[in-house]
């Protein structure tokens, strides 16, 4: 499945990349599984997407949970808690 990845703020800085197109294996079906799959890249990925880290996630611009499904062509974003206003 081909998806668009987006990273923001401290997550973007840690990974050194703002986004990428990724081809993910068929058994990665949810945001939580995607996070786990990306973490397996190791290094900064393991750190930025670490299990215990309070990260927020979105699928196609809507707040997502770990069990939110990802679909062909969707945009998945990982970012730290928000601090605007």
């Amino acid at each position: 499945m081909n998806i668009e990845l987006r990273f923001f703020a401290s997550v973007r800085e840690q990974l050194g990349v703002a986004g990428e197109r990724a081809e993910v294996p068929g058994d990665v079906r949810t945001v939580g599984e995607l996070r786990q799959w990306l973490r397996a890249r190791g290094g900064a990925w393991a750190e930025a997407l670490a299990e215990g880290r309070a990260l927020r996630m979105a699928v196609d611009h809507a707040v997502a949970r770990a069990d939110t499904a990802i679909t062909e062509g969707c945009e998945v974003a990982f970012f730290p808690p928000v601090t605007g206003g």
Binding site: T30, V31, G32, E33, R35, Q36, R39, L49, E51, R53, A54, L55, R56, M57, V63, A64, R65, A66, D67, P81, V82
Partner: peptide, 13 residues
């Protein structure tokens, strides 16, 4: 659960 981390923030493991 923005600041405190969430069910949404956990990766389901």
């Amino acid at each position: 659960f923005n600041a405190s981390g969430t069910e949404a923030g956990s990766d389901g493991e």
